[in-house]
Simulated assay, not measured.
Amino acid sequence: MGALLGFSRAMDKVSTVFGVIAYWLVLLACATSAGNAVVRYGISYSSNAWLEVQWYFFAGIVMLGAAPTLLRNEHVRVDLVFGNLSPRAQLWVDVFGLILFLLPAMGLLAWMTWPFFLDSFVRLEESSNAGGLIRWPVKLLLPVGFLLIWLQGLAELIKRIALLRGITPGTEVVVEYHRPEQ
């Protein structure tokens, strides 16, 4: 279990790094959007490349920010029943959810999007818009993002199993489960 928890801690650090990248992409997207608006309406100049780079930044925010969101347990969940379960039952729900849904779905999506990226890379695909950008960098975000979510999901599964076995993972991130106040 020690080696698995070591992998989990390493993956937590990797996800944190990609989370910081996603944070910076938010700033870049906002600055690009504002700059594009100022130039478009201030001096009546525009380029499709500026719009496309914004889309690339947004794709990076979503695809690179999903694994750190999972790490912090801030992902969307329907909490009708989950919040009323005991902490141990919550762990079991997470284990089954990770095994039955998250890991298979993210693995399949990573596998299915790799050829999509590879085809774009080999063909040096470019946007059909005038002044558009090359497409493979944004398409690379798909398999990379899904793989990061899959790996973080595996790390979360390891932590949940450790907790069920009575072992407290030694991570900086604490997964808190609590009952809502009644």
Rank of each mutant, 00 (worst) to 15 (best):
Y177V: 07
W55E: 04
A31F: 10
I99L: 15
F101W: 15
N73Q: 15
V95K: 00
D119E: 15
A130L: 03
V78F: 13
R179I: 02
V53E: 08
V138R: 10
M11T: 09
L124V: 04
E74S: 13
A67K: 05
K159W: 00
R135V: 09
M11D: 08
V53W: 09
G42N: 01
L148Q: 13
I43T: 06
G107T: 15
A29H: 03
I43L: 09
Y56Q: 06
F101M: 14
T171G: 10
A110C: 15
A10S: 14
A110Y: 11
R165M: 13
F146M: 07
N129D: 13
M11I: 05
L163N: 02
M106P: 06
G2I: 05
S8Q: 01
V20L: 14
A89P: 13
I158K: 06
D12S: 13
G83F: 05
F101T: 10
A10E: 14
W114V: 15
D12Y: 11
V138D: 01
E74M: 09
L25R: 03
L70M: 09
L154S: 09
M1I: 12
S47C: 06
G42Y: 01
M63A: 07
S127Q: 04
V175E: 02
F7T: 00
I21A: 11
P104L: 12
N73H: 09
F18W: 09
L71D: 12
V144F: 03
V62N: 10
R165N: 14
E52L: 04
F101R: 13
V175G: 01
A3E: 11
D119Q: 14
V62C: 11
S120F: 03
L154H: 06
F18N: 10
A89Q: 15
I158C: 14
F7I: 01
N48H: 08
F7R: 00
G2L: 03
V39T: 13
F57K: 01
L157F: 09
R9Q: 10
R135E: 13
L91S: 10
E181F: 04
G2H: 06
G60C: 13
M106R: 07
E125N: 08
A155M: 02
R160A: 11
Y41W: 10
L142H: 08
E52G: 02
V53D: 03
G107M: 12
V144N: 05
P104C: 12
C30H: 02
V38C: 08
F96A: 09
W136L: 06
F117H: 13
